[in-house]
Design a protein around this nucleic acid. Structure first.
Lengths: 348, 348
DNA sequence: CTGTTAGCGCATTCAA
DNA sequence: TTGAATGCGCTAACAG
């Protein structure tokens, strides 16, 4: 009889290989491999024996060796931008969760202050990641072309470029901005202001552009301040706005964090929200729902965006020629009415 | 002369290997390998030629093949608990950043609601991760022993167990709780309350225990409510507290999110903070500093905790016998005084 | 259904 | 300093 010690290896050995199992069972290594290869043909009996021995000895196929041959690592690179915005941890968590459901693992890279470390991305290539998701930042074109040459798909989450190799899943920011503008108009606001995020980002630009379009239809202009997507800068920006002679009756902030900063600034100055000024945000992060703010805002449909991201990415990976998914997807959000906007008398 | 096409491969070829470079240069594959192996001996001249050709052809060593031999993958597994608490995205981002500085990459796994997917962790073993960092959750002992058998170190961040194989880097929660208790006593509070987090977590338990110790020294008891580490539950818990006949004059919440919920509950009921009730949190997350809350709280020294985590983990990985780092580290935080606690007249 | 063989791309002996 | 040879652990033909 074969037994655990027959081949001079103890149960406590660290690296059990398919070979060990094969020897232990007196079968060939490739048969063992077949048991762990979906779709390979093995008799039910040997399958059971192998599985049993594997369980006993603690065998687990070595993904690295496997990947070396199959060229499938099941690893996806994830580049995270602005983690300070609570919107993105949510994205991160859901994205990695969904990816795991589909058998993919996430190799993480965080890009602090818009500075995507190119060398790390190149390292990722060394690990043979099969795809890349990039949230809220842009990649250098040199990096993009390296990925392109290797046919590794890239999906930009909430960003877009004209670079043909980058696909995009994005909240329809223009639409959001426009409909927020229309909403503010419809509720009787006339002295409007916009606090922008980082002016270099398409998210901020598009929200502003949509907003402008809506106002232009009514022949209205609006004041602008820069809030850099941070609480502190938006707080200051709002202060400047409130101190103006023609103080706005509504402020649209390019994200919720800034809207919260604006609300706090208003409180400090004794400007009442929404009686004296309406404030509206964008993202619908958790704190927006807190009783202390109760912020009217715009929802980014995270779940649908993530679903689209994954469907797009995995289609590119698994059936590159299928192209059933659009390469650029703009997903519309919707208004969440809470209590920071009030309807005004148009003859105010 | 050799040229790019001599070996029938075009510049656009997808997978350039060390062999390709070798052929292109008319040298051996092992020489090419040496150029990319720190400490190997290659003449300066060939090193330059190889590097040049590599650059030209876009060669990059395949980490998988390399790891197969060296047993070094430079990958660290990271299990993230409660990502809803803004404290943890910060940890995530800093941890992965520091790890990258030390040449390690992060394989991510997020554990939603305390449910660590064991199969995913076992998958991680297949990828030959070299270490595991676990934030704010606990692992099943069966998983831990599998890691132990393979000598893969585990560092628990903000959790601890008696399991010998798990090392720990933790904010000294008992100390924090105690010193918060002492602070509240010193500032004249006598009717104290505690809103706990998830009662199963050591973080909540220890903060409560320290708090109790401080009060016991003065022979005081305190009211307790459960806030489950969420804004909503803490809001309700605070409501119950405020409606009692013996309404507390100070509430210690086991984290900032809950303290914010408590503040909002107070506002809603017209209970003034800090005039009628003092509120103190734990974590010092960003929103605690917002003007709308201006929360007095306890800082977890994130940077030092992360540094300790990495030092500990990498020592276990790189020089397992050195043991210069303590296996269990409790790091003390400190009070951040803002405006939700006021000194009371002891004869009130 | 199973065993044999041949690599995947690389680091690492051992000679030269 | 370099090249030839070997094998890490595995999958994928190819026979049988």
């Amino acid at each position: 009889m074969f037994n655990l010690y027959r081949w001079g290896r103890s149960v406590l050995q660290k690296n059990i290989t398919a070979h060990d199992i094969a020897n232990h069972l007196g079968i060939s290594q490739s048969t063992v491999s077949r048991v762990f290869t979906p779709g390979a043909s093995v008799s039910e009996k040997t399958r059971r024996r192998v599985l049993e021995a594997a369980e006993l000895l603690g065998y687990r196929p070595n993904m690295l060796a496997r990947s070396l041959i199959t060229k499938k690592t099941n690893m996806i690179g994830l580049v995270m931008g602005d983690i300070d915005n609570p919107f993105y941890p949510e994205v991160l968590s859901k994205l990695s969760g969904e990816l795991k459901k589909r058998q993919y693992n996430v190799l993480l890279l965080n890009a602090e202050n818009d500075d995507v470390p190119s060398e790390s991305l190149i390292q990722f290539l060394g690990y043979n990641i099969e795809g890349l998701v990039v949230t809220d930042v842009l990649l250098s074109s040199s990096i993009v072309s390296q990925f392109a040459e290797l046919d590794i798909p890239i999906v930009l989450f909430n960003r877009y470029t004209t670079n043909a190799h980058c696909h995009t899943v994005c909240c329809d920011n223009m639409d959001g901005g426009r409909r927020i503008g229309e909403y503010l108009l419809r509720t009787g606001h006339r002295r409007l202001a916009f606090i922008s995020g980082d002016p270099n980002t398409s998210t901020s630009q598009d929200r502003e552009k949509g907003f402008r379009d809506a106002l232009l239809n009514e022949g209205l202009h609006f004041m602008t301040e820069s809030g850099g997507y941070t609480y502190e800068m938006a707080y200051e920006a709002a202060n400047r706005l409130f101190l103006r002679a023609d103080r706005p009756d509504a402020i649209f902030c390019a994200n919720d964090i800034m809207a919260i900063g604006a609300i706090d600034a208003a409180k400090k100055l004794g400007v009442r929200v929404p009686e004296d000024v309406s404030i509206i945000g964008f993202d619908n992060i958790k704190p927006a729902a807190w009783a202390g703010y109760d912020l009217t805002t715009w929802t980014q449909p995270v779940d649908r965006m993530i679903e689209a991201t994954i469907d797009l990415l995995l289609e590119k990976i698994e059936e590159p020629d299928r192209r059933s998914q659009a390469d650029y997807q703009w997903i519309k959000g919707h208004l969440v009415e809470r209590n920071t906007v009030m309807t005004r008398n148009k003859n105010d």
